[in-house]
Design a protein around this nucleic acid. Structure first.
Lengths: 315, 315
DNA sequence: CTGTTAGCGCGTTCAA
DNA sequence: TTGAACGCGCTAACAG
């Protein structure tokens, strides 16, 4: 295990001074083309890569960001994270992952660790209960996912658009009794906004709304879908994939398979288990990309804190 | 954004020298109780935490490990990772996550990055196609999950035990025509070992084996389960949860719901969607814990490269 | 037991 | 355009 080479070695090998090597490394101006080439050749040949810790100590950033998901097995968040990782690697950032488990205290704990470690930025998947006060120290280095908050950069899904697309589709198909299975209003985006969009559509098209808002869990979909199944109901709109999965199980068990289901969230599991369900893709992949772009922009060029909304697309 | 304090500041504030502070920090002996207390008090009060980058540069490790999963949405791997993360945090390690997508080249790429970053260790979820040669440089700092290889530390599931438990249970229930849905032998653990365990049980109990080995994907379970459904078949054993999910879908669609299913892998999704399926828990949670223990032991105390097998438990 | 000194690998002056 | 010197925060070797 020979210790790795340093810029000093590269300097010696290419017959220049350390600082010249440093300049080449950072693409700084003020180095003749010939010198630069020579140094770069040596670096290439020796497979040199500068010590991260040394650079970090020198006041630069250590190029580490944290991604705090609610749960590692969240289908939707996974899709977003899946595009975040490659984007981050490309830019030379190391992503460290944490799980909040929908627990604000855990988030606080994690943020504590992160502050002590002098991390560059955080991508946080929002959920009901996160306290904006505790996020305050991260205002300029945080991107909030699936939720927006004043003074914070965020990447949200187009809740209203997604619901409208689905409702329009169902309406076009002739459905006039469309029930809604959603999430309580304490969840502003998935809960309140999607519910309101549903209500608005109903009003506009003179449909009678029929709603239950049990929660986010599959089990809750399963247990509460019956409440919105009237005899005349011909279609059911679910606020999330997970909820739809739960509802589907109930419907299968109770032979209500003629009901047309629709849901927000276009996860592979859903596509496999229930291809007959109409879905919109809230743009998870694009959301992941945008979040990274935004975060890197913020921490490297003090870019403004944008609140990005990803458009939904019918599948 | 005031710059954080350093041991120098702490030294000044508590009226001692830098190295004394350093000693206190590292719990080194040779510091009087009084001095230690005083220094610790100041640290506490000032909320001091040492710079990771500086320590890392000073030759220690930077306390970063990588977890390379095959896919972020792997149900089973998630369960293991879920216990790894807290264990790692407890020990002060930062876990950075990567996805191999079952692609050996991606693993190689990732390992390249990790080597350049001077990472402490790697936990790699194995799969068919990983080349042991490319793992060679990591021999002492790698823990392989779900697969074993000569000269490497590993944490494996008890494939044979899991199958035996399930087969015994089915046999006890009176089933005498048990089919098997599994994975090709190119996958040594999930494929070969589980298949062989099934065959051995059949031989021992004079059952006629009936096998298909389509692969790991849900879709493959769905498409190939018909091949092992003979008229006399009363039970079906699946090598994995995912496969069982695919098979279930087919069985439901074809009204073969009297068939008793059993599978290795006790994931929440499975438990919810199909509680009627008999499962064994291969010990994913425990595997995660053991992997971290093993890895930390290896990198901090040069512990031997153990090949750990986690026992399965009937659910 | 404790303080002083000397680097670790790198970026950043400041002369040359 | 370049190199020498200095310091980042910390640990280690050496004095006291």
């Amino acid at each position: 295990m020979q210790s790795r080479l340093t810029i000093k070695d590269i300097a010696r090998l290419s017959g220049v001074g350390k600082s010249t090597v440093s300049r080449v490394l950072n693409n700084e101006s003020g180095v003749s083309a010939r010198t630069r080439e020579r140094v770069e050749a040596v670096m290439q040949q020796e497979g040199f890569s500068p010590s991260r810790s040394a650079r970090a100590m020198r006041g630069q950033s250590d190029k580490v960001v944290a991604i705090i998901v609610t749960r590692l097995d969240s289908l939707s968040e996974n899709l977003a994270v899946q595009t975040m990782l490659p984007s981050l690697y490309e830019q030379g950032y190391d992503p460290i992952m944490m799980e909040s488990q929908f627990d604000p205290e855990l988030v606080e704990e994690h943020l504590g660790m992160l502050k002590r470690r002098n991390i560059d930025g955080v991508i946080l998947f929002g959920f009901t209960g996160i306290n904006e006060k505790m996020l305050a120290p991260w205002q300029s280095t945080l991107v909030l996912m699936a939720r927006d908050a004043k003074g914070f950069a965020s990447v949200c899904y187009d809740d209203e658009g997604a619901i409208n697309i689905l409702m329009s589709r169902l309406y076009e198909q002739g459905h006039r009794h469309i029930s809604f299975l959603g999430v309580p209003h304490s969840d502003v985006t998935t809960g309140l906004r999607r519910h309101e969009a549903y209500l608005a559509f109903c009003k506009q098209h003179q449909l009678t709304p029929n709603v239950a808002l049990p929660g986010l869990a599959m089990k809750q979909g399963y247990e509460h879908v019956a409440e919105v199944l009237l005899p005349e109901t011909t279609a059911l709109l679910c606020a999330t994939d997970t909820l739809a999965l739960g509802a589907s199980k109930y419907l299968q068990e109770h032979q209500r398979t003629t009901l047309q289901l629709a849901s927000v969230g276009n996860t592979p599991l859903m596509k496999f288990l229930h291809p007959e369900i109409i879905t919109v893709d809230p743009g998870y992949a694009e959301a992941g990309r945008q979040a990274v772009l935004q975060l890197i922009g913020q921490v490297t060029q003090a870019r403004e804190l944008r609140q990005i909304v990803i458009p939904s697309t019918l599948q």
